[in-house]
Every structure is written in structure tokens, then in C-alpha cells.
Nucleic acid binder design. Structure first.
Lengths: 116, 116
DNA sequence: CGGTATCCAAAGTGATACTG
DNA sequence: CAGTATCACTTTGGATACCG
């Protein structure tokens, strides 16, 4: 199926639209880190050592393209790039926190099952 | 990377854990449909004509395995299978609605951009 | 420091045909 | 009605090497 049709379909359902923005492989974790304030590129990499450089860049660029993350380059030597949430990104926080809270309860439930 | 390590990482971040449950290709739309009450298999297919039979079944089974969707088979002729949210699934609704609301505002913003 | 480019393996997805 | 099986294709993601 063509990519534009997929987008069209996702555009129809607001929930799918929202999930499409935050649902990328590492986007949840990245957004989670950025709720604590702006972060430099390598700072994010240290916070998420599992994420390869390639993926970190890709996911950040997609979040930037979606308008939820702001990328600011300080032309210094050595270079410095800071990432932060845009206002639109910060408006995501209630939804993010709600899902995180649910995730916490879910984690507790499943760990209870392993140790009854 | 091994699948169990991926799970382990997702288990650490509650937000990632939550996204992992609802983030599948069609899971948002399916959950969205099921918030309206229980639905038969073909009823879901009619509500989401874009989703192939194969994917519908796969995604429903994953949601069932995650414990958020209940599958009930009525042994009649012709067969009847009803899907509904479990209590755990219903506890997801606030997060779902929050993300849907954000998605709605996002859709309005982007349509404003196309027609200023 | 903060990236790109390239290549390749693995996972995801659709189309199609078949079934109890 | 509600699936399963198989195959082909597309997409995703990691490893690695290199760059301004």
C-alpha cells in the first residue's frame, strides 16, 4: 500500500494519528527523556545506550518533522546540538503521563504474576 | 538484538511498556472500536476495511495475549466470535482518550496549515 | 561532537488460496 | 463466519565505516 494512503487512513482516526507521532521504535523513550528539559545529542545517547546512533538521529528527525521536538544547533567548536520539546510537544505530556501511569500498573501486575 | 532483551528494555520504561501494548500497526483503531462495546469479528472488519483478515486476526490475538482484549467464542452455526475490552483494557481508556484528544487538535492544526 | 552512507539480515505486511 | 497457510515483497533496524 502506498505511503500516502497509509497517512490518509491514519489521518482519519485521531487516536491513530496520535499513535503515529509517538509510536516509533524509540520515540516514547526519547520524549520521556525530553520531558525533563532540553538535552544534548550525546546526553540522550548516554540515557539510552541501547539505541544506535543511526536510530537516535532518525527518530529525532521524525519527531522534529512532526513538530513535537525542537533542534537547536550552537555553532561552536566542538559542535553542540540541543533537543527540546516544542509547545506542541509539551501539550503531549498529559497523554504521555497517562499512558506511563497505565504502563506502571501493568508492569506491577505482570511482576505480581511472576512472584505471587 | 534478541527479542527477550528488547522486552527487557521495554519493561524498564513504563511509557515504552504501554506503547508496546497499544502501538501495533492497527491496535489503536481496534481498541478505539472496542471502546464502543463488544464487536464481532466481521463487524470489526467492516469498521476497518483497510485491515486485511490476516492482520486483523494477528493484532486481535496480540491484544488478547496482552490481556486488554477478551475473545469469546459462541459455538453456533455459523460460528460467532465476539471481542471486547477486558477490565484492564477499559483501564486504558483515559490514556487512549487523552491521546485521541491530542490527535484531534493535531489534525486541526495540520489542516489549518493546508487551508490558512 | 554530531552526525551520514552503505550494506545486509530480520521482521512486518499484503495477496491469495484454502478450511472447519 | 471466522479464521489458517504460504509466499513474495517491503520496511525496519543494526553494524560498520567514514565525515565536517
Amino acid at each position: 500500500m502506498p505511503a500516502d494512503l497509509i497517512s490518509a487512513m491514519r489521518d482519519e482516526c485521531p487516536l491513530e494519528a496520535g499513535l503515529h507521532i509517538i509510536g516509533g521504535r524509540w520515540k516514547g523513550a526519547i520524549l520521556y527523556c525530553l520531558t525533563g528539559g532540553s538535552r544534548r545529542y550525546n546526553e540522550l545517547r548516554r540515557l539510552m545506550p541501547q539505541v544506535t546512533q543511526r536510530m537516535m538521529t532518525l527518530q529525532l528527525r521524525e519527531l522534529e518533522a512532526s513538530g513535537v521536538v525542537h533542534r537547536e544547533v550552537f555553532p561552536s567548536v566542538p559542535p553542540c546540538v540541543e533537543y527540546s520539546l516544542t509547545e506542541l510537544g509539551r501539550s503531549l505530556e498529559p497523554a504521555l503521563m497517562s499512558l506511563r501511569d497505565w504502563g506502571e500498573r501493568y508492569q506491577q501486575m505482570t511482576s505480581d504474576r511472576r512472584q505471587p
